[in-house]
Design a protein around this nucleic acid. Structure first.
Lengths: 210, 210
DNA sequence: GCAAATTAATGATTTATTCAAG
DNA sequence: CTTGAATAAATCATTAATTTGC
């Protein structure tokens, strides 16, 4: 549809004067192409983030924006982007930390969980992401499975259930383990539970470090 | 429509300490008529949930099940039910929290930002958490807001933008006030920056940055 | 000391996924 | 099954840091 000319003049050299000034004070003369937050603005934004704000609503953005204007020029979109980026990068950071943590664990095998060691979540060594959607190839297979699972579950739910054996599900050695105990603790648990995209352990996936 | 049942089984109550208790050890003596997850099992299941798994496929269920058997007896249907219930209840919980938040907001007239101290960001007195995901009680409020953002940003992104205002995003005076130092409506020198997409959030009152 | 050159951060866009109405 | 809204991931692009040669 819209083929953005990749070669547009991104240059926009803007002849920005390398004013070398360290503080991006709201000096209007600097017609920079992008928002350059002041220290105060950053401080406030981070404070809001710590308060739990992640994806502010339009109204919130408005309020925040007008509030931040006293410290320098800023628009709503800047606030919007800031939260987008900050959230994403915090998550990214944590993934790396978690990854490092797991790597460490793999080198120091934790005491084999007998029965009461809380933890051990590492399951797949594959990206995993939310792979629940991509385990099927023909498109209907999954549906079938689901239904089957459901049916099996509900129908047979009487007494003598016996490993219903949902399918020709060969155990496959896919899920070798390399368990590692982990559960909270690592990282600043600043994500809330309600959010359904914690992706705490996605680090197996799109990890860019390497 | 697809509101998961609500009172299925499994209490998830932190199962009592394994020691000595009749914790559902792998002995299918069927002392209880229903699955009683062990703490380890819960931990793992929650971990998987955090990883993004919501509705595992039959295969995944199978894998998870066999994995969890290490910590106590369990069947595929238990896993299946657990995800069903957990998903539904998390959603329910979040809706409630969000609703509470909004109720609070409605009772506390939008706190006039007494901005002065840089460090203290007294925006919302409540933790706020992240209500962005479901702040609707009836189901439309949030939609409106988001839509506004989206439409303004992506669709209207064309030419001279000017506070499109395709919404009752009435300022409500909530955020008006101070800091009005920079007016702008005057010059309407909109095209200041060569970026087309800049209109993303015009509705915030496309004011010049500086 | 200072700028050009290089690297690291981070603002801004675009693309892909997810979810749930219709 | 299709589609729109919302959001996260990936990517692009610019600015600040910093290194480096003089």
């Amino acid at each position: 549809m819209e083929e953005e000319d990749q070669e547009a003049d991104h240059k926009v050299i803007t002849s920005s004067p390398p004013s070398s000034s360290s503080s991006p004070s709201p000096s209007p003369s600097s017609s920079s192409s992008r928002w350059n937050p002041t220290k105060e603005q950053i401080t406030i934004l981070e404070g809001l983030y710590k308060q739990g704000i992640r994806t502010p609503t339009a109204e919130q953005i408005q309020q925040i924006t007008s509030r931040l204007k006293q410290y320098g020029c800023i628009e709503g979109k800047n606030v919007f982007y800031w939260f987008q980026n900050h959230k994403a990068r915090q998550r990214q950071k944590q993934r790396q930390e978690t990854f490092a943590y797991f790597t460490t664990l793999l080198h120091h095998p934790p005491p084999p969980p007998p029965y009461n060691t809380v933890g051990s979540i590492g399951f797949y060594e594959q990206p995993l992401h939310q792979c629940q959607n991509s385990m099927y190839s023909s498109g209907t297979v999954r549906m079938e499975m689901k239904k089957a699972a459901a049916i099996n579950g509900f129908s047979a739910a009487s007494d003598h259930y016996q490993t219903l054996e949902l399918f020709p599900l060969h155990p496959t050695g896919i899920l070798e383990d390399k368990c590692a105990s982990s559960n909270e603790s690592l990282g600043d648990g600043d994500e809330e539970i309600g959010c359904e995209n914690m992706t705490l352990f996605n680090f197996f996936g799109s990890q860019r470090l390497c």
